[in-house]
Design a protein around this nucleic acid. Structure first.
Length: 365
DNA sequence: AAACTTCTCAACCGCTTGCAT
DNA sequence: TATGCAAGCGGTTGAGAAGTT
């Protein structure tokens, strides 16, 4: 591709446009149409380069441009589209009639971006800023509690720190949709979000395990935790063993994140059922054959279910997730810890949002 | 009221893309 | 296929406006 020659010849005017120049440009385009931007300035009697004329027309003089403040709806649309499209301002502008890409870009940088930052949301990934919210640190005591089955009030308080996330489904949806938008740039997407979603789901499981520990008898619980939660090693009250198990769990979490970085198909393994996983995989692997992806997905599910040491087994799989079952519990069992009554399904409820809901981006399409 | 700082946004810069030859 | 050009795009700049001290 040849590089376009610089159109700024000596004598070409730069800087702000005068009303007279605007008038000339508008009059010419109304009479002759845009035509060739390179020859337009000369024909219109303007001492500007064609590029400058085009920008002035498209960003300011075009009759269909909507001026004035952005409405709330427009702002919401921009945020949603940005979570999917990224800084594709022209693509975003195409869905906002009357708004130019330049205007949207400016509005994003001067208003929306700052507001998201104030809210603790990364304006690039639309995920909570991990430098502000260290989920790993929060998860550690929660995982310990789940392992011990006798959580302290502090552990439960820690778990409740996740509650704000659960209260912002839009925020989580944005994060998930950004993940899907990684179909054009998978690396950028999964590096930021997959670990976060994995951690969120790990927390969900920890919460589920904690909810279980206050409801059914320990023996039954142990069976459930071992068979359904697929975290059997976490069932132990010996502190030394607990530490070893915690380290193993953390390693498993790291392995999962690493697996997500190195390969695409397992993405389906972390998504709840009710989702067309092969279709999602095809989004991530646009060139891949659909039937092959279906097979890949099937084998992923099978191997995850059959092998507790599998990378994907630490998180929920469509057929084995204990969380789905817990979320369907309609009864609430209350118990007391340190003087405070806590509903046993509270903890699970904190993370009751299903990823299949999060990943439904049809709203944005 | 003046000086200073912060914000806004039109315009520019330089790179990429797509088409014609 | 390689090259040249026009158009498009996203990042950046800087002048003027608005706000603060």
């Amino acid at each position: 591709m040849g590089r376009a020659p610089c159109c700024e010849k000596s004598g070409m005017k730069k800087g702000p446009w005068t009303p007279e120049e605007d008038e000339k440009l508008v009059a010419y385009i109304k009479k002759h149409g845009q035509g060739n931007w390179r020859t337009l300035p000369k024909n219109a009697g303007l001492a500007r380069c064609g590029k400058s004329c085009r920008l002035r027309w498209t960003n300011y003089l075009r009759p269909d441009i909507k001026r004035g403040r952005f409405s709330f709806e427009e702002e919401e649309t921009i945020i949603q589209l940005h979570s999917i499209l990224g800084n594709k301002w022209s693509a975003i502008a195409a869905r906002l009639p009357g708004r130019t890409d330049n205007e949207i870009k400016n509005y994003w940088n001067t208003h929306i971006r700052k507001r998201l930052l104030r809210m603790g949301i990364d304006p690039v990934t639309h995920a909570p800023r991990l430098d502000l919210l260290d989920l790993s640190a929060l998860l550690k005591p929660a995982a310990t509690a789940a392992a011990a089955y006798y959580p302290t009030q502090a552990d439960l308080d820690t778990l409740r720190a996740f509650e704000p996330l659960a209260n912002y489904p839009d925020l989580l949806r944005l994060a998930a949709s950004t993940l899907l938008s990684s179909s054009t740039s998978p690396i950028a997407g999964d590096q930021q979000l997959l670990p976060w979603l994995l951690q969120a789901q790990m927390a969900q499981q920890a919460a589920a395990a904690m909810a279980q520990q206050v409801a059914p008898p320990p023996q039954q619980q142990q069976q459930q935790a071992g068979a359904a939660c697929q975290m059997p090693d976490l069932v132990h009250t010996n502190p030394t063993v607990q530490q070893q198990q915690l380290a193993a769990a953390q390693q498993q979490q790291q392995d999962m994140a690493a697996a997500c970085h190195s390969m695409q198909p397992p993405i389906g393994g972390y998504i709840d059922d009710g989702l067309d996983v092969p279709a999602l995989m095809q989004m991530v692997q646009p060139g891949a054959d659909a039937s092959n992806l279906q097979q890949q997905w099937s084998s992923t599910v099978t191997s995850s279910s059959n092998n507790n040491n599998n990378v994907g087994s630490g998180v929920s799989t469509p057929s084995s997730s204990p969380v789905a079952g817990l979320n369907n519990h309609s009864t609430s069992t209350a118990t007391t810890y340190g003087g405070g009554a806590i509903a046993s399904n509270d903890a699970a409820a904190l993370f009751s949002m299903q990823l299949s809901e999060l990943l439904d981006v049809s709203d944005y399409m």
